[in-house]
Amino acid sequence: MKTVVILLSCVSLIAADKANLRKFTSGNVAFAADIYKQVSAESNENFLVCPFSAETVLALVQSGAKGETRKELRTALHLSQSSEKIENVFRSLLPSLSGGKHYSLHAANKIYVKEGYAIKDDFKKTAADVYQSSVENINFSEKVQAAKTINDWVEKQTENRIHDLVPEDSLTEDTVVILINALYFKGAWSQPFRRYLTLKRDFYKSAGDVIQVDTMRNRDLHGYYESSELNATFLKLSFNKSKKVQMVIVLPNERNGLAALENQIDKVLTAPKFTSKDVNVALPKFTIESSIDFKKILKNAGVKKAFDHADFSGITGKSGQIYISDILQKTFISVDEGGVEAAAATAVHLHGKSLIDYFGGEKSFVADHPFLFYIKIKNIVVFTGRVTSPA
Score class of each variant (00 low, 15 high):
294 F>G: 09
46 N>P: 04
75 T>W: 04
2 K>W: 06
365 F>P: 07
73 L>G: 08
336 D>Q: 03
342 A>F: 01
233 T>F: 00
9 S>P: 05
25 T>Q: 15
268 V>T: 03
310 A>G: 10
277 K>Q: 14
370 P>V: 12
59 A>Y: 01
123 F>D: 01
207 A>C: 02
305 K>Q: 15
127 A>H: 06
261 L>Q: 00
83 S>P: 03
210 V>I: 15
190 S>A: 12
208 G>Y: 09
120 K>L: 12
199 L>E: 10
328 L>R: 06
114 K>D: 10
140 F>T: 11
151 N>Q: 13
258 L>D: 02
268 V>F: 00
49 V>L: 13
111 I>V: 14
280 N>V: 10
73 L>E: 10
40 S>W: 04
198 T>N: 06
365 F>E: 08
223 G>A: 07
285 K>L: 13
156 K>M: 11
188 A>V: 07
319 S>N: 05
14 I>G: 08
139 N>M: 10
162 I>W: 15
256 N>I: 00
149 T>A: 08
36 Y>W: 12
27 G>V: 14
52 F>S: 10
279 V>M: 11
382 V>E: 01
184 Y>A: 05
257 G>I: 00
295 K>F: 10
218 N>G: 13
33 A>Q: 05
33 A>P: 02
234 F>K: 05
348 V>H: 01
352 G>Q: 10
292 I>S: 08
99 G>S: 10
229 E>N: 03
368 D>S: 11
226 E>Y: 02
252 P>N: 08
12 S>K: 09
177 V>R: 07
99 G>E: 09
32 A>F: 03
217 R>A: 14
50 C>F: 05
225 Y>K: 05
241 K>C: 08
115 E>P: 00
176 V>K: 15
281 V>D: 11
66 K>V: 15
120 K>F: 09
32 A>H: 03
219 R>D: 09
74 R>P: 02
189 W>F: 09
185 F>K: 02
3 T>K: 11
385 G>R: 12
39 V>W: 10
19 A>M: 07
355 L>H: 09
342 A>W: 01
299 K>Q: 15
347 A>W: 00
162 I>D: 14
214 D>N: 15
132 Q>V: 14
71 K>N: 13
150 I>W: 03
101 K>A: 14
67 G>N: 10
215 T>A: 15
96 S>I: 08
263 N>L: 01
346 T>G: 04
95 P>Q: 11
116 G>I: 07
207 A>L: 08
113 V>R: 04
94 L>H: 06
55 E>C: 07
126 T>A: 08
92 S>K: 07
146 A>K: 11
157 Q>G: 04
34 D>M: 01
280 N>S: 15
326 D>E: 12
159 E>N: 14
115 E>M: 05
234 F>I: 12
148 K>A: 15
29 V>W: 03
301 A>V: 00
202 D>W: 02
252 P>M: 07
150 I>P: 05
289 E>V: 12
108 A>N: 14
340 V>W: 07
97 L>N: 09
74 R>K: 13
46 N>H: 08
342 A>S: 10
93 L>H: 09
66 K>P: 01
372 L>P: 03
323 Y>M: 15
338 G>N: 10
367 A>F: 10
386 R>V: 14
47 F>A: 11
33 A>G: 05
118 A>N: 05
192 P>T: 14
